[in-house]
Structures are given as C-alpha cells and as structure tokens.
Design a protein around this nucleic acid. Structure first.
Lengths: 208, 208
DNA sequence: CATATTACATACTATTTAGTATGTTGTCTA
DNA sequence: TAGACAACATACTAAATAGTATGTAATATG
C-alpha cells in the first residue's frame, strides 16, 4: 500500500512528534520545578522515549531550554494574551476579561506555579545569555503586540490621545507578570481582586 | 586580662560572625545564580570558612535558604523600602522617589539580578513549602507596612477617602516586583521610565 | 589551670547529573 | 527489495553535589 494514507501516519518513529513530546514533558516539569531544578532524566522519564531521543533532538540541556522558549512559551503567550483581544472592540476590556478568566478564575493550585515565561525570566535571564536573549525577545513581542492593540484602541477613541501606548503596553505586561508573581508568593486567594481593582483604576485613568 | 575588653572581641572563632559571613556569601551567590543553581561548596568557597562551619550552623541547605529569607532579605526590604518612607510627608512621593533612586538610577549591571525576594519567590515558592511560608510572610509584611504608610497618607489628606489602602498596597508591592522582573528580562535601559510613568499615573488616580 | 565543650577543619561517601559511546531497528530511496 | 541512513535505545563515565564522620584547636567554665 506504498503510502496511500497520508493522514494516518502510523510511524513508530517520528522526529517532529518526538520533539513535541519531549518539549511537552519538559514544559510541565520545568514549569513546576524550574529549569535548574529539573534533570534531563526527569524529563525523559515523563516520556515514552529515552535519553537517546533527547540528545538526538537537543545537543544540550540549554538548547532544550531555548527551544522551550521559542517553540512552546512564545506561541502560548500569543494564543492566550494577544489573539483573544481581536474579539474586543475595546482591547482594554479584553485584557481585563482575559485576566479575570485566566488568573482570577483559576484555583490556587493552578496559580501556584506562576507564569511559565516569568519563571524562566527570573531564574535564567541572569544566568545564561542565550536564555536572556530569547526571553527578552518574547517579552518584547508581547509588549509590541499589546501596543498594537492599544494603538487601535486609541484610534477608535477608547484611549486618551496624549497616552503613550507603547509605555502603557510596558506597564500592562509588567502587571501580567507581577500578578502571577504575587499570587504565586502569597497564600491569599483574594489577592487577585485587590490587584485587579487597582489595574482597573489605571485603565480608567488612560481611558477617555 | 580576663575579658576586660568587651568591644574588641579578638576571637578567631565566633558563631555569630561566621553565620553572617556565610549568609553574606550565600546572598551574593544565590542572588546571582538562584538557590538551586548554587552549591554549598560554592558558598563556602566565598568564605574564609569551610564546610564544617556551614553544617555547624545550618542542618541542611534548605535551612540556609530559610535563614536567608528571615535574617537577610526581610530586614533588607524594611531598610530599603519601608523605613525611608518615614521621612516623607506624602508616602506616595516617597515611594516614587525611592524607586527612582534604587531602580531608575541603577545601572543595567545592577539590575540584571533583579530583586532578591522576587527571585526566591519565583524559584522556590512552588518547590518547597518551608520556603513558601517564609516568602509569603515577607511579602505580607511588606504589604502591611506599605498599607500603614498609605493609611497615614489618607489621614493626612493625600489619598482619596474611598481608596482601599490595603488593596493599593498590594498593587504597589506587585509593581515593585514587576519592575524588577521586567527590567531583568528586557535589555532596554529606558524601560524603567515607561513603567514609572504609568505607576505615577496610577498614583495620581488615587491621590486627592 | 584543667578540662569540657564549642566551633570549626578535613576527608570521605553515596547519589545525581549532563553528556557520550555504541548498538539496534524502523523507514526511505534508488 | 536491498542497502543506507535516520531515529532512536542502552550502557556507561566523569564530574558535581548534599551530607557525614571524625579529628582538632580555641574558648569558656568551675
């Protein structure tokens, strides 16, 4: 039957799939315990594969970390925080709604690991330049894309003309990371409401 | 001469001093490379002491971490962010001034390691309950002390009566951590100004 | 001032770790 | 369909690591 079936790839060996499996396991482990707190053996143990597969994909553990930022975390930021804003006429409302959904409505159990991007920034940015470069790029992208929505909001009359949207975008991304960071550190489940109220007040102050 | 000299303790062995020396070295190393990224050997190598002294003071590496939070980082927060506010009639101005001095005027080299407290929160809070408990206590103290100043500001007519100062304090501490975290991740030295402007706008929105 | 105890120093160990060397089998191509 | 090569699996290694066992000298105390 040659290769008539294109959709059902019944392959026992698949470079792409294996890569995704490893990256998925690595994401879970590193999200929970940090990059330096997780060993390569820990990661492959969460996998149907072995060390051979790991080092066939990634020359070193650091390279896995880089791939994690570029291939998993950055797309996740876009999916969770940027794309949903398209559906809101007023992006500021969209941002608040998203934060309520993804943070406010989460259980403490889900929040205790924080934000995957922020975690790596805090842990690895000062330790390794390769990490820093990629993490910095992810943050910049987040800021730029947020700014894009804010400029739209300004054009549509939701934001005061004198507001520097790029600077506001900086602050908003900072608030995302800050929210996650605080809720991770505190044990108070009502802390989100406190933070949310103040952020809303800030949004009001730049709104028309 | 028995022990006539009380001030000049010329002792070659001193439990307190040794503890401080170890905690000082540990602070530097862990600040730069993270708790899990630093070994006990790394720490004692920065010291005039050896491993014997280390384990005479701390039963385990985790206990050193706990002591670091309680005996070094928490006092540092109080000294740097709380006590200086006493000198300002309007604490909100004091907070902005302090941030300008301690963050805005710092070189990228000084900022690349972020905030000692935030670093440990992000890295260790989900990993170890003992850490989480102590880190949480440090954050709560910071928030409570900030709130104390905000209540004073409210009483003195600097803050609108309808503002919930405790919630505002939450937001302010979040902003501290968020500032450090962002500046650690980004490579843009002008990012502080962007963040500062927005925080000032928030302060204006709660001011009378 | 004798001695008990504290405050260390030194040497060692079992385990974990990133990475390698090499073997094996599925899959593709000619 | 017969190799050729890619995609792994397995077994191993050298270094690092937290912690221990034990020795020793300074200091306190009676």
């Amino acid at each position: 039957m040659k290769t008539a079936n294109k959709r059902i790839k019944k392959k026992t060996r698949n470079l792409e799939l294996s890569r995704k499996e490893i990256l998925g396991a690595a994401f879970q482990e590193i999200f929970a315990r940090g990059f330096q707190g997780v060993s390569v053996d820990d990661i492959v143990a969460r996998t149907s594969l072995t060390k051979g597969a790991f080092y066939h994909q990634f020359p070193t553990k650091l390279d896995l970390g880089y791939a994690l930022v570029e291939e998993v975390i950055t797309p996740m930021i876009i999916e969770r925080w940027i794309k949903p804003l398209d559906q809101y006429k007023n992006p500021l409302q969209g941002i608040l709604k998203r934060m309520q959904e993804l943070i406010g409505n989460s259980s403490p159990a889900d929040l205790r690991y924080g934000c995957p991007l922020n975690n790596l920034v805090q842990e690895m940015a000062p330790v390794d330049p390769g990490f820093k470069k990629r993490l910095s790029a992810a943050l910049e992208l987040w800021i730029t894309e947020t700014d894009r929505h804010l400029r739209r909001a300004k054009k549509d009359g939701y934001i005061k003309p004198e507001v520097n949207t790029r600077r506001a975008a900086h602050f908003i991304v900072m608030a995302h990371e800050g929210f996650f960071g605080m809720l991770k550190g505190l044990e108070d489940p009502k802390a989100f409401d406190a933070l949310y109220e103040s952020l809303k007040r800030f949004f009001d102050s730049i709104s028309t």
